[in-house]
């Protein structure tokens, strides 16, 4: 996505504030995680749009969840979702978070993220390119705006 186009969409959505994002790996392979990090670094540089990765879910507007949910992470994902203040949006990044991907039929895999917490935006890909991740976050902005205006519960 072009810089100007993205700015335009952010403007259209009327989102006045910077978007803070918390990244949580629930049992993925790291592929999506390094692409999220790549999106923050100079070539993609999401920070110029005010999108910032934060170190605590208590500060976040958006949860980026990567990976299929493993047994020990099951309760922790719920806890982190509960710790994120409303209004919040959850983005499932990658095939594993969306559908559990290649990880099925195991004693330690509890399934995709939407088995555990509600997911608003799905970004497919294994792993999705940084552009796709940014696109997913922009879709989340639109949703967050609507939540703020009280149009959706």
């Amino acid at each position: 996505m072009k810089h100007a186009e993205l700015l335009e969409r952010l403007k259209l959505s009327g989102f006045k504030r910077a978007l803070w994002v918390y990244h949580l790996n629930t049992g993925g392979c790291n592929g999506c995680d390094i692409e999220i990090l790549a999106a923050l670094t100079p070539r993609y540089d999401v920070e110029r749009f005010g999108i910032k990765l934060v170190g605590s879910p208590r500060h976040a507007d958006v949860l980026l969840v990567t990976g299929t949910v493993t047994r020990p992470m099951y309760e922790r994902v719920k806890r982190i979702y509960a710790q994120t203040p409303d209004p919040k949006v959850v983005i499932a990044i990658g095939g594993c978070a969306s559908t559990s991907g290649v990880f099925y039929d195991s004693y330690n895999v509890m399934g995709p993220v939407d088995n555990v917490i509600p997911v608003d935006v799905y970004v497919p890909g294994c792993p999705p390119r940084p552009e796709a991740i940014i696109d997913g976050v922009v879709k989340a902005v639109v949703k967050l705006e609507r939540l703020l205006e009280g149009k959706e519960g």
Partner: peptide, 24 residues
């Protein structure tokens, strides 16, 4: 905490599927 039981899953898949699993 990230243990997915890959070896367990692998003994239920065919060898070509195994490449995809190993990659991940």
């Amino acid at each position: 905490f990230m243990h997915r039981g890959i070896e367990f899953m692998g003994t239920k898949r065919n060898l070509v599927q195994l490449i995809y699993l190993a990659e991940r």
